[in-house]
Nucleic acid binder design. Structure first.
Length: 887
DNA sequence: ACTTTAACC
DNA sequence: CTAAGGTTAAAGT
């Protein structure tokens, strides 16, 4: 075994600069420029691969180079200001380095060269070999028998290593003479003057004669040519100054800890995550990983929470343990897969110091009821709704004195999506716990009960710990009321809805499926005939080739991978060929068949001869505060076309005598906009309960209500939508299929007529720029760090988000609050009716006929009176035997 | 695993 | 020159 140490030192600024100018201005889908970070990373991966460093560090410039600036105020004076597109990539580079665990060093007032010079000097003394990686020739001066400098050439993809030998061959100089070379010839990029008119050639000639600037200047008379002699005399001081500027300071005050530069392994998961976020797809494969490529191995979770040992218990020991539990108890429900239908393995119960694990034998022991219904204890879960729904299946109710770390964490940063339990734990406690291994149907996990218990116990204990932290963070962010009074109570409402499910008429569904199947097959045949060949109609690639290459139709839009065949493209093509209309119809029916008929049949669960679907509402996912629905998604059941709408016939009440009640808010987002903007014109429209799109049309097109035709109303509707979304003339022009200029005029006249809305849009963006977040009526927050980005795309996106989120998010707040209130009142009145679904602005109930009137009255009142705005809220209610008929 | 398309509000 | 808010699912590559 050799203990040879190899230290690689990267000149962070130089390599990032080089990469930026060498690569085209790549940006990812978020509009972040990433070319420099990408180039830097390519270089880093190459170094890891080729050089196999034992030690690695990166140096960055920090602040003004004070020493050089004092000597020479114009130092780097001609340099253009770093472009924003580059500046914003330095933090990305640092993030990448962090993910690899590679340290970077910066010292106020010093440049990266000086840091590298200082470290290599020290490294030499303790017997390390160093490789300096840079694009800056100045650093050749550091070369010795222990220091090699690698220079980038032509962009960054090619590099060249310089030892003393190569410097001799290339320049005929020793490494230290590089300073003299620069002293004579200067450096335009750093605004180092040197001797005017002396370039590399002359300088080398001079240095061949006399080895240093000082010697050259002492023997000016011997320089070739009168002119040159004159210049040397005239600019002798400049040469000395230039040499001084070019000399790397190898004594930067700096704590050098070579141990911290040691590079053995890195957290591949972390790096992957960052690469994915940055969209460095091609680099994912190039990560050095285990095996022959390198000795790098994925890091094991470093810290386990070893303070907690988990004791495996039986149900009859439970009572004894409950007695000893403190006021706050953490839980982890250990289950496989879906919380509604997956297998339950067991339950971990924990305090901050101790944990118990109760394995289940298929069913939950009834003794648990005592614990879950103990009002005196605060029960901490990661996902209360999941636990509550799972318990419901086993006829155990959960008391409401609970804390949900999932929901709390989500409210703290809703743009991040569903918080990962293990990330939340690490964030708040520093503990890096291992997730419980997930098995698949094919390959169940092999894990001992002891191990399972220990992992689950640690999570439960950690959850107690983080509950406190999350609670504090909610208080600090003014989010506690939103959490306590809205989201947490809603969790129980949603658990009821999920647990109950919605009845599906599967025979009706199958009939619809049969009908669709026939028509799809017929359409397919017709399309193949019209196209003259058979191909996979579901493949956009093959369809594009047939339409645009074979049939020669005019292709308009392109995607990354080829022709776009999306509906808006096809619609414009319909006049060119009858096949296009058929394809549109095929797509439409195919969508209904695969997503809805087959999807719902697959999701339906049978109980006796009744089929039900139990969606899961994700309450901790969207950036705006809306819910989402999965497995199956019941928030996107077709309605727009009659063909699709028919599917709503299959959603029926549990009892055929019962009814479906659908209650939807009328124009809730625009009403909220009217309220928060205070626009008098808009408020007036809603106070008089006018048709808002028609009203908008009269204003924008300056006509009387009678003169508004369907086209004008459609355009006005699109403008209203655009306003809610955070408008741009381009977006509106796309939507209405009109020239951008015209769309711009629509927007301008809209803002003229609704000046309050215009003011709101400006104000909310200003406020967002100050706070870097926006809020809704009930205090929900969404962080917008990009609102001050220099990148146009990122900033614009954040601005539109700033305009939209308070509207969409307040609408979400309002309906959620109505749900909690309605659910409460239904319970108080012991109604048999059930709340079934929420679809963003509508609520669906099933209801026995004798309760219909009472329920309608209750629902309307709670929905419309849930909060007092400066405009009335309006709910439209409809009753029918199926969801379809409740229209 | 990502891309395209399409369903909803 | 950039370029519409929030989602989920299926199918293809």
């Amino acid at each position: 075994m050799t203990d040879k140490k190899k230290l690689v030192l990267i000149d962070g600024n130089s390599i990032t600069y080089r990469a930026f100018f060498a690569l085209p201005p790549l940006s990812n889908s978020k509009g972040q420029y990433t070319n420099a970070a990408y180039g830097f990373t390519t270089m880093l991966l190459k170094l890891l691969q080729d050089e196999q460093p034992t030690h690695l560090m990166v140096a960055f410039d920090k602040g003004k180079a004070t020493v050089r600036q004092q000597i020479y105020a114009e130092y780097k004076g001609t340099r253009e200001k770093t472009p924003g597109e580059l500046r914003e990539q330095f933090p990305i580079v640092r993030e990448i380095l962090d993910s690899f665990g590679i340290p970077y060093v910066e010292v106020e007032g010093h440049e990266a060269d000086d840091i590298i010079g200082t470290i290599t000097q020290e490294a030499e003394q303790i017997g390390y070999d160093s490789l300096v990686v840079t694009g800056d020739k100045d650093l050749l001066q550091l070369v010795s028998d222990r220091v090699t400098t690698m220079l980038t050439r032509k962009g960054i993809s090619e590099t060249e290593k310089y030892t003393e030998k190569e410097i001799q061959e290339r320049y005929g100089l020793t490494p230290l003479q590089i300073i003299d070379l620069k002293g004579l010839m200067g450096d335009t990029s750093d605004n180092i003057p040197g001797i005017p008119g002396v370039g590399e050639k002359t300088a080398l000639k001079l240095l061949a004669q006399y080895p240093t600037v000082e010697e050259v200047l002492a023997h000016v008379d011997e320089a070739p040519g009168k002119k040159l002699q004159e210049k040397l005399r005239e600019h002798a001081d400049s040469a000395r100054l230039s040499k001084q500027l070019a000399t790397i300071n190898r004594a930067v005050p700096l704590d050098i800890d070579f141990e911290s530069y040691r590079f053995e392994s890195y957290d591949a998961g972390k790096v992957r995550e960052i690469f994915k976020a940055l969209e460095f797809k091609s680099l994912l494969d190039r990560l050095p990983e285990g095996g022959s490529e390198s000795e790098l191995v994925e890091q094991e979770p470093a810290v386990k929470q070893e303070a907690v040992t988990t004791q495996i218990i039986a149900a009859d020991e439970l009572a004894g343990i409950i007695e000893k539990l403190p006021a706050t108890v953490g839980f982890y429900l250990d289950l496989e897969g879906n919380y509604q239908f997956g297998d339950l393995h067991g339950l971990a119960i924990a305090t901050q110091e101790a944990a118990w694990y109760l394995p289940f034998d298929k069913t939950l022991p009834a003794e648990l009821g005592a614990l879950f219904q103990d009002q005196t204890k605060t029960k901490v879960f990661y996902d209360v709704k999941a636990v509550c729904t799972a318990l419901k299946k086993h006829d155990i109710d959960l008391d409401h004195n609970v804390f949900c770390t999932l929901l709390g964490s989500y409210l703290l940063s809703p743009s991040e999506g569903t918080p990962d339990l293990f990330e939340v734990i690490e964030h708040h406690s520093g503990w890096r716990l291992s997730p419980l291994p997930k098995g698949t149907a094919k390959k169940p996990v092999e894990i001992s009960l002891e191990e399972r218990a220990n992992l689950a116990g640690a999570v439960a204990a950690a959850n107690v710990h983080i509950a406190e932290k999350v609670g504090e963070a909610l208080e600090a962010g003014d989010l506690m009321a939103l959490y306590r009074d809205l989201e947490l109570p809603l969790s129980f409402v949603l658990a009821d809805m999920e647990g109950l499910g919605v009845r599906i008429d599967t025979s009706e569904l199958r009939e619809i499926g049969e009908n669709l199947k026939e028509r799809i097959e017929a359409l397919q045949k017709e399309i193949y005939e019209l196209a003259g060949s058979e191909f996979n109609l579901n493949s956009p690639k093959q369809l594009g080739e047939v339409l645009f290459d074979k049939l020669g139709l005019p292709a308009s839009k392109k995607t990354k991978t080829g022709y776009s065949t999306s509906a808006d493209v096809l619609e414009k093509l319909a006049e060119h060929s009858p096949v296009v209309q058929k394809i549109l119809e095929y797509r439409h029916l195919g969508k209904l068949q695969s997503t809805y008929v087959e999807g719902l049949l697959n999701a339906a669960r049978q109980n006796g001869d009744i089929f039900r679907v139990h969606t899961q509402f994700n309450q901790a996912l969207t950036a705006t505060g809306r819910l989402s629905s999965t497995e199956p998604n019941l928030q996107n059941i077709p309605i727009r076309t009659e063909e699709g709408r028919r599917l709503r016939h299959v959603f029926v009440p549990t009892d055929p005598e019962w009814k479906i009640l659908a209650a939807d808010y009328s124009q809730i987002e625009l009403r909220i906009l009217a309220h928060i903007s205070g626009d008098e014109n808009m408020i007036d429209a809603f106070v008089h309960d006018e048709d808002i799109h028609t009203r908008t049309a009269t204003q924008v097109f300056e006509v009387t209500p009678e003169e508004v035709d369907s086209n004008m109303r459609r355009a006005a509707k699109a403008v209203n939508f655009g306003i809610v979304y955070g408008i741009s003339d381009f977006g509106l022009s796309q939507n209405l299929n009109i020239p951008r200029k015209q769309a711009g005029q629509f927007i301008a006249s809209y803002f003229e007529k609704f000046p309050g809305v215009k003011r709101y849009m400006e104000d909310v963006v200003d406020q967002a720029r100050r706070d870097e977040y926006v809020t809704t009526l009930l205090g929900r927050k969404r962080h917008l760090p990009d609102i001050n980005a220099s990148n146009f795309n990122m900033r614009s996106f954040a601005e539109r988000t700033a305009m939209n989120t308070p509207i969409q998010g307040t609408a979400a707040d309002v309906i959620k609050k109505a749900m909690v209130n309605i659910h409460k009142e239904m319970q108080e009145r012991s109604l048999r009716a059930n709340m079934l679904l929420q679809v963003h602005d509508e609520l669906i109930f099933e209801c026995p006929p004798e309760e219909i009137e009472e329920l309608k009255e209750l629902v309307r009142r709670e929905m419309e009176q849930v909060t007092a705005l400066s405009v009335p809220l309006k709910a439209d209610l409809n009753v029918g035997d199926t969801w379809y008929e409740a229209k």
